[in-house]
Write a protein that binds this DNA or RNA. Structure first.
Length: 675
RNA sequence: GCCCGGGUAGCUCAGUGGCAGAGCAGCGCACUCGUAAUGCGCAGGUCGUGGGUUCAAAUCCCACCUCGGGCUCCA
């Protein structure tokens, strides 16, 4: 009793309507019946919840969604297809090249290669590869999907060891041997017994789950960006491959806009602005990853630290100071030497063989303060805070400006509390964190919960579960997006971290909060409870800025160097129009300084235009121009940073009041000027 | 740590085997100006460091330091 075979099928659209199509019709045919523009913008289809090629014949009754190039899924398809074209181009330019993995990533794609004879790509090769890619695109090659068995697949990729390894691994995973990496899943069919490939031409075949655009003529708005080394399968013990990164978009406008965003990020680079604004430097004489702060950078840093201290005092923290070096024993007890010895500066041998380490963490020192005498439950929670400078031997290749250094200062505190106080303390803490970050102008947050790292941790399952649940519950209460970072915790406990998005939408990990049952145990911490019995406290490790250096770097990039007035090293510059206005300019400056403002006078040795330009390049919030009119009537001309045009004849007292209010308002984000 | 590419004046960079250069910044003098670069002059360099090749090295070779882009790592 089978249904009668007809020549027609029906397809259901996302809006619930259905269309009738001839049997054998594809999603592309469907798109054409809807409109020529849709058919042109389409790059793939979602059929019954699965992404497939546009050209695949539809089953009767299928639910079909046409994926256009300007959607996240559509861009992934474009980028993945562009990666294939790049691999084809590389193989045609370097016969015998082996290609490994080439996925779509955020804003682009990459592909990893091994070139014959150990040859490496050079920057100049990118232009050649791009030219070859444009030739392939112009040839309108179809992406033809084929399915093969495992043995056939291995045969097809006889000269491609990386592809064979992927096929073999997926096949053995299917046999129950192992889990397939997420990384490989895009390369392989959803059915492990089937090897899916895409054939672009006789010369090029790639292993791939798809979907792909129907033909290379759908591509073209791309650019190759850089070459880099990358370990095969991300494993430093495996061969290092040559990776080419590129970006691809659905239109030239989108491509240009992306490249513009990249330029904008470069313009904000704290390493560049740090030198231009004379904030800090990395003298080679000192060593890699070790910064010095110049007066202006030092001033910003002091303002950040002073404000943080004020807030911490108000939040019930007590301030402590601890040394920079310690006997090895302390880090043996804490466990740091077991887990992180490679990341520590090597020990100094002193006093007949006694080993001393420069500290990479402050926690054991704060623990010793806790341990210095017997503690009562009445003292808890005990919150010990320190701007603690620590030194970590970061790998030379990991060092990056102020964001990854070998010497840094943490706004570090450890909260010792009773187990039953933990939840309340965490909640109060997270509110405190978000509030403090907001005062620095960061307002767009999400949270990340990092759980137990498998095989790299200590403690019982119960402790981990309890700590993780506490963090999870507090995170949920904040009403913020909470994402899971599986296995990202420290060896002694899970953590929740606050991620902040900056002015151009990049996210930075800022604060971290960690619950720790282990160190109190290792150090044998206790307090006397109301029941007169001994109890073990738990510890909460937390850093809000993370590292002061890194936080400053984030602020530089967030504000593009144009710090809000309360943090600006120079808040006001007074520019006399001529030398004979200098005395009045000095008076204006003196009055503002008396009110606590940071003011400089730039005398008339150069034309006014040149001094205004310099003030703007220095991103000073207010440039005050004073000339004849102002001297006679006690006014100033106010040139506010980012303002369209200057204000003339402003009464000094009015301006001073406005400035005082702005400084008091702290982190209210203001318009960031373009130059 | 690994792969690739850099390191020349305070900064940005030119200079591919034969005299060490430019612009900006700095200093001096002149200019005295109402909102994004006034003019002239002067000074400034162990060409990252060490070794090698050569009649001759910024330039070619080796090692190291350091910076950048990635990978790995990030308590």
């Amino acid at each position: 009793m089978s249904a009668p075979v007809t020549d027609e099928i029906s397809a259901q659209l996302p809006d619930g309507s259905t269309r009738t199509l001839p049997r054998g019709a594809s999603a592309l045919d469907l798109a054409k019946t809807i409109g020529a523009r849709l058919a042109k913008a389409a790059v793939a289809a979602e059929v019954d919840g699965q992404l497939v090629d546009l050209t695949r014949p539809l089953a009767d009754g299928a639910a079909v969604r046409i994926i256009t190039a300007n959607t996240p899924e559509g861009r992934d398809v474009l980028r993945h297809s562009t990666a294939h074209v790049m691999a084809q181009a590389v193989c045609s330019l370097w016969p015998g090249a082996r290609y490994a993995i080439g996925p779509a990533i955020n804003d682009g794609f990459y592909y990893d290669f091994e070139l014959p004879g150990g040859v490496h790509f050079h920057d100049e090769d990118l232009a050649r590869i791009e030219a070859e890619m444009r030739r392939i695109i112009a040839a309108s090659q179809p992406f033809a999907r084929e399915e093969h068995g495992i043995a056939e697949g291995l045969e097809l990729f006889a000269d491609q060891p990386f592809k064979r390894e992927i096929i073999e691994q997926v096949a053995s995973a299917a046999a129950g041997a192992a889990k397939v990496d997420a990384e490989l899943s895009a390369e392989t069919s959803s059915d492990p017994a089937v090897v899916t490939i895409y054939r672009n031409s006789d010369a090029f075949v790639d292993l791939c789950r798809g979907p792909h655009v129907p033909s290379t003529d759908r591509l073209g708005h791309f650019k190759l960006l850089r070459v880099a080394g990358a370990y095969w399968r991300g494993d430093e013990k495996r061969p290092q491959l040559q990776r080419i990164y590129g970006t691809a978009w659905e239109s030239d406008d989108e491509l240009k806009s992306y490249l513009h965003r990249m330029q904008e990020a470069e313009r904000r680079d704290h390493r560049r602005l740090g030198a231009e604004l004379d904030l800090f430097s990395f003298p080679e004489e000192i060593g890699s990853g070790l910064a010095v702060f110049h007066p202006k950078g030092g001033l910003i840093r002091r303002l950040m630290e002073d404000y943080s201290r004020e807030r911490h005092a108000a939040a019930g923290y007590e301030f402590v100071y601890t040394p920079h070096v310690t006997k090895a024993d302390l880090f043996e007890v804490s466990g740091h030497l077991d887990w992180y010895a490679d990341g520590m500066f090597p020990p100094m041998e002193l006093d007949g063989g006694q080993r001393y380490y420069v500290k990479p963490m402050n926690c054991p020192f704060h623990i010793l303060i806790y341990k210095s005498r017997q503690r009562s439950y009445r003292e808890l929670p005990l919150r010990l805070f320190e701007f603690g400078s620590v030194y970590r031997y970061e790998l030379s290749g990991a060092i990056h400006g102020l964001t990854r250094v070998r010497g840094l200062t943490m706004d570090d505190a450890h909260i010792f509390c009773a187990r039953e106080q933990m939840a309340g303390e965490l909640e109060q803490l997270l509110r405190f964190v978000l509030d403090l970050l907001s005062d620095f102008g960061l307002a767009d947050f999400y949270l990340e919960l990092s759980t137990r790292p498998e095989g790299k941790s200590v403690g019982t399952d119960e402790e981990w579960a309890e700590a993780t649940a506490a963090l999870d519950s507090v995170g949920r209460q904040m009403g913020l997006e909470l994402v899971l970072d599986e296995g990202g915790g420290a060896f002694y406990g899970p953590k929740i971290s606050v991620q902040a998005r900056d002015a151009i939408g990049r996210s930075w990990q800022m604060s971290t909060i960690q619950v720790d049952f282990q160190l109190p145990q290792r150090f044998g911490l206790s307090y006397v409870g109301a029941d007169n019995g001994r109890h073990q406290p738990i510890m909460i490790h937390r850093a809000l800025f993370g590292s002061v250096e890194r936080f400053l770097a984030v602020l530089v990039e967030h504000y593009a160097g144009a710090f809000p007035t309360w943090l600006a090293p120079v808040q006001v510059k007074v520019l006399p129009v001529r030398d004979d206005h200098l005395a009045y300019a000095e008076e204006v400056a003196a009055e503002l300084k008396r009110q606590g403002r940071r003011v400089e006078v730039d005398p008339a040795a150069e034309p006014l235009g040149a001094r205004v330009r310099r003030g703007r390049l220095e991103k000073v919030p207010y440039l005050l121009v004073v000339g004849d009119d102002d001297v006679t009537s006690g006014t100033i001309g106010v040139n506010a940073r980012g303002a369209e045009s200057p204000e003339r004849n402003v009464a000094l007292a009015d301006f001073a009041e406005r400035l005082a209010a702005e400084v008091a308002a702290h982190g209210a984000p203001e318009a960031v000027p373009e130059r």
